[in-house]
Computed example of a mutant assay.
Amino acid sequence: MTDKDKLSVTVDPDVAAAARAAVSSGRSGSVSAWVNEALHRQMDHERRLQAMDRFLAAYEAEHGVIADEEMAEAVRSARADAIVVRGKRSHGAA
C-alpha cells in the first residue's frame, strides 16, 4: 500500500451520501478512494487554471490586454461555429 495522509474532513450531507452511494454501487472501492479521486480532479483543475493564467499573462504582455469587445466577439464566433448535439440551436444566441 502506498503512503497516505489521514485527514478528518467535514462535508455536506449530500456529498457524504453520494460517496456512500458510489461505494454501494461499486463505482468506488471506498469513501476514501472516492474523496481521493475528487481531490485529484480538483488538483488537476487548479493546475490547468494556473497554466491558463500564465499563458494569458504572457500573451497579454506581448500583445496587449484582451479587450472585452474581443472576448465578446470570440464568444459569438465560437457559438456560431458550434455543432449542436442535443436540443435546438437558439436563434440570436450570442
Results as ranks from 00 to 15, higher is better:
residue 23 V to K: 02
residue 53 D to G: 15
residue 21 A to M: 08
residue 93 A to D: 10
residue 28 S to K: 02
residue 53 D to L: 04
residue 13 P to I: 09
residue 2 T to Q: 10
residue 52 M to W: 10
residue 28 S to G: 06
residue 78 A to F: 04
residue 86 R to P: 02
residue 3 D to F: 13
residue 54 R to A: 09
residue 12 D to M: 07
residue 60 E to A: 08
residue 85 V to W: 05
residue 68 D to H: 09
residue 6 K to W: 12
residue 12 D to E: 12
residue 41 R to Q: 11
residue 75 V to K: 14
residue 42 Q to T: 13
residue 19 A to N: 05
residue 37 E to K: 08
residue 29 G to Y: 01
residue 60 E to I: 06
residue 2 T to L: 09
residue 82 A to L: 06
residue 28 S to M: 02
residue 78 A to L: 14
residue 15 V to M: 02
residue 30 S to E: 03
residue 14 D to R: 05
residue 21 A to L: 14
residue 28 S to C: 10
residue 56 L to M: 14
residue 58 A to G: 11
residue 51 A to N: 12
residue 68 D to N: 10
residue 49 L to N: 06
residue 76 R to P: 01
residue 2 T to E: 14
residue 61 A to P: 00
residue 92 G to R: 08
residue 60 E to P: 03
residue 73 E to A: 08
residue 65 V to A: 04
residue 75 V to W: 06
residue 6 K to Y: 06
residue 18 A to F: 02
residue 94 A to L: 11
residue 79 R to A: 14
residue 46 E to Y: 10
residue 74 A to H: 03
residue 70 E to H: 09
residue 24 S to G: 10
residue 91 H to V: 00
residue 47 R to E: 07
residue 43 M to I: 06
residue 14 D to W: 00
residue 58 A to Y: 02
residue 44 D to E: 15
residue 77 S to I: 05
residue 11 V to E: 06
residue 70 E to N: 07
residue 23 V to T: 03
residue 62 E to W: 07
residue 30 S to C: 03
residue 20 R to C: 04
residue 75 V to Y: 06
residue 32 S to L: 01
residue 36 N to S: 07
residue 34 W to A: 02
residue 73 E to K: 04
residue 70 E to S: 14
residue 4 K to T: 15
residue 94 A to N: 10
residue 63 H to S: 07
residue 43 M to R: 13
residue 87 G to D: 01
residue 21 A to W: 10
residue 68 D to V: 06
residue 46 E to D: 09
residue 14 D to I: 11
residue 27 R to W: 05
residue 69 E to W: 07
residue 18 A to V: 02
residue 10 T to A: 10
residue 36 N to G: 04
residue 38 A to H: 00
residue 39 L to W: 11
residue 24 S to P: 00
residue 1 M to Y: 09
residue 79 R to M: 11
residue 24 S to Q: 12
residue 41 R to S: 11
